[in-house]
Design a protein around this nucleic acid. Structure first.
Length: 569
RNA sequence: CGGAGUGUAGCGCAGUCUGGUAGCGCACCUGGUUUGGGACCAGGGGGUCGAAGGUUCGAGUCCUUUCACUCCGACCA
């Protein structure tokens, strides 16, 4: 491809809303173009090339694993979503609209319903299973706050795959196969990543794993073990139960006047007791389908933090939101002095597992300016769940090693779905005995457009992108420093044509610009290697540049074609 | 949803306080010179000043309403 004819609008200036390296360089390098903000992007020729490269790696590995590519309708009838029960549950991220006949539709944020619909119409027998179907298509999620360019757009390219099985065991086999396949994909793309345990979110299902590309700019906090391979999203992380060295308080069971002591810190100081022996009670409003909601008290140890996603799952709610003082007093609660013990009637209480049977605890009194001491958390009286956030320094649940936080970009997510969708949607097959059974499903996603951002987050320097071999828009950049110099231009043309014939994707910079401008563009665009034909040609030499580290090697001009072949093939 | 901020040429911004011919840099077009680190000279094109309403002889600027976007937060009572 000749640069002089390619649409690559590189810019010197950084758009003011871009803060992340990937966002800045993808815009400045002319890969993508923002569509009036709000998380929508056009892909320009360079960006489209990278997208296709990444997509091909994904397709290549999936096909090798026996998956079959299909393409599902982007606009899906709302009725399918009502059948699965997600029309309400998915919330505002689901973009809903009506056609001219007032029929309701949604733009697919994920396609479980659609794929199940496809399969239930065409698969009837156990002989047709297992089946793993996928597509690489647009998705739309009306994100609360799109940001960071391709990292969190509203419209994005996603690979979504769905597998169908006769039983749980076969689904698990496929789940493991997909884990291996995903590892191959991310490895080929040159990414440093970690597979972690995850929360299943709105998709539903049981076991799920995320593929996290490690980067400081990642939006997810993941917990990893120093000693073993344990890794989990903070939303799903667990730990070995914590003990407390400080002695348990021996206060009698009584009500104590504690004016204006509303924080764990103040309470700990007042009673001179480790926060481990205090009960922290957090009130939140849980939202359910059909606009129903209730106030829930979440009780945990004062030394712990509430993990909202776990809490949300514990009450099986769609979402948890803050409760204001007014709502609290209406429910008979006093901020700062709440307690699971003696909570007002009608207020649901969820208690953390670590409090099961705990004694000597200090709680609020559910009365302004009073706490109670010497409480025991009766195992029979409460619902117990794991609702705490794992903290750095906690112990690994697998090996007892030390856990620490790191940041990751969620680039892939695989789920063991079971019959979460096949049952409500009536996706059944006839087994050997002619008996109808719901298919057991798995679902597997990769954020393809997000991967472009993830690659750049891991592979860039202060000058621009450094694409990995399998993601680069071109294999090689051939630059003619001064196109008015006939010898330089002639050699450039010769090298370009020769390498193109050998199947190397070459971007040939034949523009009239000066050396400096072209060099800046090269660095910004970040093709892995370049051949620079310039001044040194007078002495019979050209340069071979490696973008990573910008190392330059001088090579005799007559050997350059063979040299490049040797290096790239 | 809460808080803060910004909307003026494709991009980045000034002008708004104190109303009076719409500006600058980059990019773009024409001609010329230049060619190893984002060249220079000369000439040129491009604007419903986010939208609507109002005040005024006159509004980018003042008033009202509204829309959009950006940033921070949305969890420990």
């Amino acid at each position: 491809m000749r640069f002089s004819t390619l649409l690559v609008p590189t810019t010197k200036e950084t758009p003011n809303d871009a803060t992340l390296a990937s966002h800045i360089f993808l815009l400045r390098g002319g890969f993508i173009q923002s569509v009036g903000g709000s998380g929508l992007y056009n892909f320009l020729p360079l960006g489209k090339r990278v997208l296709d490269k990444v997509r091909n790696v994904v397709k290549d590995e999936l096909d090798a694993a026996g998956c079959q590519e299909v393409s599902l309708s982007f606009v899906t009838p709302a009725s399918l979503w009502e059948e699965s029960g997600r029309y309400e549950k998915y919330g505002k991220e689901l973009l809903r609209f009506k056609d001219r006949k007032e029929n309701e539709f949604v733009l697919g944020p994920t396609h479980e319903e659609m794929m199940v619909n496809l399969v239930r119409q065409s698969v009837k027998s156990y002989k047709q299973l297992p089946l793993n179907l996928y597509q690489i298509n647009l998705k739309f999620r009306d994100e609360i706050r799109p940001r960071f360019g391709l990292m969190r757009g509203r419209e994005f390219l996603m690979k979504d795959g769905y597998s169908f099985h006769t039983d749980e065991a076969d689904m698990k086999r496929e789940f493991d196969l997909m884990e291996e396949t995903y590892k191959k994909i991310f490895t080929r793309l040159g990414l440093e990543f970690r597979v972690v345990e995850a929360d299943s979110g709105a998709i539903g299902g049981s076991g799920s794993k995320e593929f996290m590309v490690l980067a400081d700019s990642g939006e997810d906090t993941i917990v990893i073990c120093d000693a073993c391979d344990y890794g989990a999203n903070i939303e799903a992380a667990t730990r070995k139960e914590k003990a407390c060295d400080a002695p348990a308080p021996t206060l009698p069971s009584e009500k104590v006047h504690t004016p204006d002591i509303t924080t764990m810190e103040a309470l700990s100081e007042y009673f001179n007791v480790n926060p481990y022996y205090l009960v922290k009670t957090v009130a939140m409003r849980a939202l359910y389908d059909e606009g129903k909601s209730e106030i829930v008290l979440f009780a945990l140890r004062g030394s712990d933090e509430l993990q909202e996603v776990k809490a949300c799952n514990a009450v099986d709610a769609n979402d948890l939101v803050e409760v204001n003082e007014e709502e609290l007093s209406e429910a008979g609660l006093v901020a700062g002095f709440m307690s699971p013990i003696g909570a007002p009637k009608g207020v649901r209480v969820v208690v953390d597992n670590t409090l099961k049977g705990a004694s000597g605890m200090i709680c609020g009194a559910n009365e302004k300016d009073y706490h109670t001491t010497g409480n025991t958390i009766d195992e029979e009286s409460f619902d117990f769940y794991d609702i705490v956030a794992v903290q750095e320094g906690d112990m690994c649940p697998k090996c007892g090693g030390t856990l620490r936080y790191t940041k990751g970009i969620e680039a892939g997510h695989i789920f063991q779905l079971g019959t979460r969708y096949s049952e409500p949607l009536g996706c059944t097959f006839l087994d050997e005995n002619g008996k109808a059974k719901p298919m057991v499903m798995g679902t597997y996603g990769i954020g393809v457009s997000r991967l472009l951002a993830a690659i750049i987050e891991q592979h860039h320097d202060e000058k621009g992108c450094i694409w990995t071999k399998e993601s680069a828009p071109f294999d090689l950049y051939v630059m003619v420093s001064n196109v008015k110099d006939e010898a330089q231009l002639a050699l450039g043309e010769k090298v370009y044509e020769a390498l193109k014939r050998k199947g190397i994707d070459v971007l040939f910079d034949d523009r009239k610009d000066r050396f400096g401008a072209k060099m800046k563009d090269y660095e910004l665009i970040g093709v892995p290697h370049a051949v620079i034909i310039g001044k040194k040609l007078a002495e019979g030499m050209v340069e071979f540049v490696t973008r990573e580290g910008m190392e330059k090697e001088e090579v005799p001009a007559e050997e350059i074609i063979a040299f490049v072949e040797e290096k790239l093939c």
